[in-house]
C-alpha cells in the first residue's frame, strides 16, 4: 500500500485529528472566553467525527431490521452513532452552562478578555 492509498483509507481519521488540533489551538491560545468556548466545541466535534468514522463502512446499509434484511455484515455499526448522541447532549449542556457563566462574567467585569479579567481580579484582591 503506497502513501496515497494509506492517506485515502484514513482520510476521516486524519481529518478528525486536524480539526482536533485546530480546536486545541483555539482553546489554548485565545484569551477571549467566547473563542475558547467555540474551540471546545470544535474539539468535541472532531472527537465525534472520529468516533462515527470508526463505525462507518463505505456503501454499508442502515442498521434497521426488516424482513428483507441483507446480510448483517453490510450494516454500519450503529453503536458509535448512539454513543455520539450521548456525547452531543453532554456537549450541548456544557456549552449552555459555559455561555451562561460567560454572561455572568461579562456582567461582573465588563470584558471577556481573560488577561484583562485576571488583572481586574488581582486589583480587587489587593484592595
Amino acid at each position: 500500500m503506497n502513501a496515497f492509498e494509506l492517506f485515502v483509507a484514513n482520510i476521516h481519521f486524519l481529518g478528525a485529528v486536524i480539526i482536533f488540533v485546530i480546536g486545541l489551538y483555539m482553546v489554548i491560545a485565545h484569551p477571549n472566553l467566547m473563542k475558547r468556548i467555540i474551540g471546545i466545541n470544535v474539539m468535541s466535534s472532531a472527537v465525534f467525527y472520529f468516533f462515527v468514522a470508526i463505525g462507518n463502512i463505505s456503501g454499508g446499509e442502515v442498521p434497521i431490521v426488516n424482513p428483507e434484511a441483507l446480510t448483517p455484515a453490510s450494516f454500519i455499526n450503529p453503536l458509535p452513532s448512539a454513543l455520539i448522541l450521548t456525547g452531543i447532549v453532554i456537549s450541548v449542556s456544557i456549552t449552555v452552562y459555559a455561555l451562561a457563566l460567560m454572561i455572568k462574567i461579562y456582567q461582573a467585569y465588563g470584558t471577556l478578555n481573560q488577561d484583562e479579567i485576571a488583572e481586574l481580579m488581582k486589583k480587587e484582591a489587593d484592595l
Binding site: L33, I40, S44, V47, G87, I94, A98, L101, I105
Partner: peptide, 23 residues
C-alpha cells in the same frame, strides 16, 4: 464574582480533560 471565573476555568479544564478521555 470570583466564583464565576473559578467555575469557568474549572469547566474549561474539565472539558478539555473529558474530550481527551473520550479520544
Amino acid at each position: 464574582k470570583q466564583n464565576y471565573m473559578a467555575a469557568f476555568r474549572y469547566l474549561m479544564m474539565n472539558t478539555l480533560a473529558s474530550i481527551s478521555v473520550m479520544f
